[in-house]
Amino acid sequence: MPRISTVGYSLKQGVKNIKRNRMFSLASVGTMTACLFLFGIFYFIVANFQFIIKNAESSVGVTVFFEEGITDSKITEIGRAIKTRVEVSEYKYVSAEETWENYKQKLSEEAIATFGDDNPLENSAHYIVYLNDVSMQDALVNYLEDLDGVRQVNDSEEVAGIFTGINRVVGYVSAALIIILIGVAMFLISMTVTTGISVRKQEISIMKLIGATDFFIRAPFIVEGVLIGTIGSLIPLGFLYVMYHRVVQYITDEFSNPYQTLQFLDVSTIFRTLFPVSLALGIGIGFLGSYLTLGKQLRKIN
């Protein structure tokens, strides 16, 4: 366990390293800021896209039609069976009369008059089932088709396929982008630490000769990396907070419509995830970048 004075000394030396190595430190903080800023923008897009998709998914329903002459108790039983499924977010019963009333809105007065008091959709009572996740549609449809009393199940396979595909592509692209950004940021931190070590080569050599432990020699460089990572993540988070707030406000004001088709996640929901993830990324990249470089560089110094 290091002494408090040693921890204080390491922190002080870490800050000194950054000052002494000003240009490289600024470049590292700048790159880290740019990387995490891009990451933040990307996260805004992905999170909101998924939010919009989720909303759209919830409007994609599966329709369950019953066999002719089915009893009310059997319909209730099927409803209970639907309710037990985890993939179901909501379901509602639509009677044959309601179906005909809804359909009538699409027909002309003359066309409606030809039916008189008859209900041509007499056998069209059904359940509309909404899903939590559209990718689970197949499993639910298979289950529903096997239920006793069910005549037909209509799904929206194409829509489900498109949404699942988009979700997958967004996931892959975001993973690839994050990996590239992490790589670039780690390279820069590594360059900064390497320069710091070469500037302090004599000091490190003296430290080794007079009995400094490995921890004591490494700690200031780790502090340097972590500080660069922390600063490099807090700056873009500040920018992103202000920017997101304003952009969402602007879009909502300018493009609002009564159907609320454009809905965005609010800033606190976004930052509940983005803040800890960005900070952890910044600190993690700073720590790893310096730690991995140290082992290699310090071996070169006697």
Binding site: R3, S5, T6, Y9, S205, I206, L209, I210, G211, F216
Partner: peptide, 29 residues
């Protein structure tokens, strides 16, 4: 250890150079 080329830290004063040797082995302030 003492060397021909002294090996002092040029960005630190005399006090800090001597204190450095103690700091390195974690001597209390």
């Amino acid at each position: 250890v003492v060397f021909q080329d002294f090996r002092l830290l040029h960005d630190r004063n005399v006090f800090d150079n001597v204190a450095f040797a103690q700091r390195v082995i974690e001597t209390p302030t």
